[in-house]
Simulated assay, not measured.
Amino acid sequence: MELLVLGGTVFLGRHVVNEAVARGHDVTIYTRGLHGAAHPDVEHVKGDRADLTPLHNRHWDAAIDTSGFDPEPVQASASLDLGHYVFVSSCNVYPDWPDKPVDEDSPTWQDGEGYGQGKAAAERAAHAAMDGRFATVRAGLIVGPHDNVFRLPWWVSRIMRGGKVPAPGAPERSMQIIDARDLARFLVDLAEQRVSGTFNGTGPIGQTSWGELLTAAGDAELVWLPDEKLIEAEIEEWTELPMWLPAKYEGTWRVDTTRAQAAGLTTRPVLETVRDVRSWLENGGADELHDWRSEFRPKPMSAEREAALFRLV
């Protein structure tokens, strides 16, 4: 298969390229060449999403778009000579999420500005351009080696340092994650098989728990802090203690993936993902990260801030 990957050098795109190359596909990536290194066995065409001139007058059997956020460039990409188009979207397209559980038929944003609104508009643009040859995968929390946003690595890194670690909420609270390698495999499957439709790309509901996830990272002493204590301490949701939202957001970890599972999405054990993230960190993984999306990376929590939290227990 002749495959075009829009993106392909940082995190999810990197795993998509690795998966496609391992299957023997001829891969072309289209990036600005500013972040990360291209796989040695792919064609790297350099350019910006706003100008697809370098891709004109060429044909690909399929494209996987890991870097589209706005409707205009995504529509332009979908208007290339492509057999099939697989778009990486986000659960943020659902207005109800994370306040309420969602499934693959839940309503999406139809107007407005913002990340989720842009992704929803991009989905509609690509769907219109591809005329039934389009799949959108609404990703959940993507984790794994080479994670440039550094959410799960933040936790693994902190637990590797040992001592007392503030843990959010309750150990039994459920979570859903998706290893980037599993998501990449699913995306390539959809491209190979030319499957159309809408899919939620994350682990199954009840896949794991906070306790299982953090315990898998190492032997540090986890000090569990109830939501009300974290709110009292004005902990910034999702970022200061990465991936934490209070339980009142009941839909956070209740994203239904029935259709995706029927189409072949499978997820590896959480223990394997955490182990591989730890190995990546131990081998200097954090040092490889470039600046792309670095503004979203959570900052280390100071010892003073941690001590203040422990006094709340």
Rank of each mutant, 00 (worst) to 15 (best):
S106Y: 10
M130G: 09
E123Q: 12
T136Q: 12
W109G: 05
D99Y: 13
Y115N: 02
P101K: 07
E104N: 13
F134G: 02
T108E: 04
E104S: 05
P145N: 15
N148E: 07
K100G: 01
T108C: 09
K100M: 14
R124G: 11
R124T: 04
R138L: 05
P145V: 12
E104V: 06
K100Q: 15
G116W: 00
M130R: 09
A139M: 14
F134R: 04
A129F: 13
E113Q: 07
A121H: 10
T108F: 00
A128H: 13
A122P: 09
P101V: 08
V137R: 03
D147P: 09
G114A: 11
G116V: 02
R138F: 07
D105I: 05
S106E: 15
T136N: 15
G114T: 03
P145Y: 12
D103F: 11
G118E: 08
G132H: 13
A139H: 13
F134A: 01
E123L: 14
Y115D: 07
N148S: 15
E104K: 00
G114I: 09
A139Y: 07
A121M: 08
V143L: 11
R124L: 14
E113Y: 07
E113I: 07
Q110R: 05
R138H: 14
E104I: 04
P145S: 14
T108Y: 00
S106A: 09
R138A: 12
V102W: 06
N148R: 09
P107S: 10
Y115G: 05
R133A: 06
D111N: 12
G140R: 03
A122E: 13
V102L: 02
G116S: 02
E104F: 09
G144D: 07
L141Y: 12
G114S: 03
P101M: 11
G132E: 12
K119I: 02
G144M: 11
V102A: 07
Q110A: 03
A135C: 09
A128Q: 04
P98I: 06
S106W: 08
G112E: 02
N148Y: 15
A139T: 14
E104M: 05
D111Y: 02
G140W: 05
D147I: 08
K100Y: 05
A122N: 09
R133H: 08
D99S: 02
A139S: 13
A135G: 02
D99T: 06
G144Q: 03
V102Y: 01
P101E: 13
P145E: 14
A129R: 10
P107L: 06
D103G: 05
